[in-house]
Design a binder for these strands. Structure first.
Length: 625
RNA sequence: UGCCCCGUGGUGUAACGGCAGCACGACUGACUCUGGAUCAGUUAGUCUAGGUUCAAAUCCUGGCGGGGCAGCCA
């Protein structure tokens, strides 16, 4: 479903164009993860590919998640597989349905028209089916449904919490095998006994409990007989392992807390390391792709899978380096702080690096995908320049955004020799990059607004725009020459410019072939739509707000000028019909998007998505320095 | 300083023992009814020291540098 109200044929054109690009890119793009998948397929270790995107519903998805989504869906797409959306919700105290909903929306939006056909969900309310293995053990399996197979039935994302019962079962099995035990040590004791990086830990006093006692205690843990923190279930591995995570890690903790998805059914909750790999297994995941910090957990991921006698092929975990983008932060905790402390208007504030924020700001999903494709994937720490993301936004919007004229900081121009009360209409091209976008009518009259930046009483070197005695073109209208200015006597500020037009230049071309150095945009004062436009800049003033120096706080680097609200901009009247979410290029300024929340019928409010490249600003800056 | 991972132009990423390439950026110029777009060009890189080899970004060893790991978080 297109996210805005573009015409049907325009949306179709975008899709076929995108499809071609995807094919081209995928034919050549490869990375170490795709090579692993390729080899697994070639060797027959797996016969098809199933990946998963497993966010914890404790915050909104951001551009870093977009990288992961594009990777997981991209791999599935490239190798004819599928990708499950799973809420990794094993901690009841941190998660919330608000996040489940936003995550689902954001994933669908990001992959729409690209990989939405392989987004695997499951029937609403479905839990894993059980079958007996040849060894007589329970095998839990919950395959998902592709959109093509749902046939109108209600579906929902997968939830790790839907596997609490199977997981409990697997835990029991581990206890029976003597590979897990109930431990009564306090959190502090466990912590102290874990040892340190260079000294081995100490075994739990309860490590030698009998299978029967462990079974009994674990069942009573589930039954709610013990308070929070009283006991844990631990894997029995090796307290002197050099890898800390192998030192009898905790599998279950007691939490008498309501869970957003399972309610009060449980008071024991599985830990990530125990739950994740087995959740992957239950869903039939073949390749479990995560970020680098989980690399040291990989032996544990494999240990749980190997410790059980599982019937089907094991998933494998592989890790890649998370995305960092300059001038922004990726930590969900910190993003939450921005929201809670009111530094932004919400998770979807257009300044946020969240998917919902970028969507609201006007970033097309295609641009975000192209960005993720271009940055590649590897294992080294990386910080991608924000400019690259913006490049893809401009690149995409340039091809599809209809042009319009808008004056952000109006300066009145009176064309003295133009007849009072006369109005005429000019035909303006909607998109010079796309002839099929057609033209529109723009009204013109004696008084027009131009951008304050487009007039200088004393033009600096190389300034080609309007100034006294200079002739410029009003885009698609007439050539005009500045004849004088009116100033505010108190401040000396130019409040009005006077000009004359050449009637022979109707449409913008001079019959005598004379050239002008500059074309500027304008809006007829009598016809202008006055509305609010919001300009955005980076949220932080430093390249790496995540790495603030000792004693500092990332909040100290917030950009006080990250938003500028212009209350009375003058737009060409056709923009009154802008649908919420519709994207335009305001000529010579940038790309703008009608805010989906604040726009009213006939009264859109615009967000600046990204500026156009500004060569003049560069020249001016160079001249100043 | 225990274990694990990683070092290629300013940034990101290729090259899988055989010509160090691509994209963004930066800089020139052309073109232009958007100082946009487009087009042409320039700039700039294998952390380091040894070793193996006809040949090393790639394999081996050491050094240096960066990152991760000691939640009953994920």
């Amino acid at each position: 479903m297109p996210d805005d109200k573009r015409s049907q044929d325009s949306a179709t054109r975008d899709q076929s164009l995108q499809g071609q690009q995807d094919q081209e890119q995928q034919a050549e793009r490869t990375d170490f993860l795709r090579e692993i998948v390729q080899q697994d397929l070639a060797s027959g270790r797996v016969k098809s590919v199933v990946t998963r995107f497993p966010p914890e519903p404790n915050g909104y998805l951001h551009i870093g998640h977009a990288k992961s989504i594009c990777l997981n869906f991209g791999i599935a797409k490239q190798f004819g597989g599928r990708c499950n959306l799973r809420m990794d919700d094993t901690n009841p105290t941190k998660e919330d349905v608000e996040y489940v909903d936003s995550i689902t929306t954001d994933v669908k939006w990001l992959i729409d028209g690209w990989a939405d056909d392989l987004l695997t969900l499951k029937p609403a309310g479905a839990t894993p089916g059980v079958s007996k293995t040849s060894a007589g053990e329970d095998d839990f399996y919950l395959p998902g449904l592709l959109p093509a197979d749902t046939a109108g039935q209600a579906v929902e994302p997968f939830y790790a919490s839907d596997y609490f019962e199977p997981l409990y079962n697997y835990a029991l099995e581990l206890i029976r095998k003597g590979k897990a035990f109930v431990c009564d040590h306090t959190a502090e004791e466990v912590d102290a006994m874990r040892g340190s990086t260079d000294t081995p830990g100490t075994e739990s006093h309860y490590r030698g409990r009998s299978v029967e006692e462990n079974l009994d205690l674990f069942e009573r843990m589930r039954a709610g007989e013990f308070p929070d923190g009283a006991r844990t279930l631990r894997a029995k591995i090796d307290m002197s392992a050099p890898n800390i995570w192998l030192r009898d890690p905790i599998m279950y903790r007691i939490r008498h807390a309501s869970h957003h998805h399972t309610g009060d059914t449980w008071c024991i909750y599985p830990m990530y390391d125990f739950a994740h790999g087995l959740s992957d297994y239950v869903e039939g995941i073949t390749h479990s792709i995560c970020t680098l910090e989980f690399e040291v957990h990989r032996p544990l991921y494999d240990w749980f899978l190997d410790a059980l006698d599982l019937a089907r092929v094991h998933p494998i975990q592989r890790e890649f380096a998370r995305l960092n983008v300059s001038y922004t932060i990726m930590s969900k905790r910190r993003l939450l702080r921005l929201v809670q402390e009111g530094k932004v208007r919400g998770w979807d504030d257009p300044r946020m690096p969240t998917i919902s924020g970028m969507r609201r700001r006007g970033y097309p999903a295609e641009a975000i995908r192209a960005f993720c494709d271009r940055i590649g994937v590897a294992k080294r720490e990386n910080t991608v320049e924000l400019g690259l993301l913006e490049y893809f936004v401009r690149d995409d919007l340039n091809k599809r955004a209809p042009r319009a004229m808008a004056v952000l900081r109006p300066l009145k121009v009176v064309i003295d020799n133009y007849p009072d009360g006369q109005t005429e209409e000019f035909e303006a091209v909607n998109n010079p990059e796309d002839p099929s976008a057609g033209t529109r009518k723009v009204p013109f009259s004696k008084v027009v607004y131009i951008e304050q930046d487009d007039f200088r009483e004393v033009p600096p070197p190389k300034y080609h725009r309007l100034s006294p005695g200079v002739e410029v073109r009003l885009r698609a209208a007439y050539l005009i020459t500045c004849t004088g200015v009116v100033k505010n006597p108190a401040t000396g500020e130019v409040v009005e410019v006077h000009a004359t037009y050449d009637p022979a230049t109707r449409g913008g071309d001079a019959p005598d072939g004379r050239k002008v150095k500059s074309t500027i945009h304008w809006v007829s004062a009598a016809h202008a739509l006055s509305t609010e436009v919001r300009l955005y800049d980076v949220l932080f003033t430093v390249e790496s707000p995540d790495n603030v120096p000792e004693g500092g706080d990332f909040m100290d680097t917030l950009n006080p000028e990250s938003i500028e609200v212009l209350a009375d901009c003058k737009l060409e009247p056709s923009l009154a019909a802008a649908a919420p979410g519709a994207r335009y290029q305001f000529e010579r300024l940038g790309y703008f998007c009608a805010d989906p929340e604040d726009s009213k019928p006939g009264a859109p409010v615009f967000n600046r998505t990204v500026t156009l490249k500004d060569t003049w600003a560069k020249i001016e800056k160079k001249g100043a320095s």
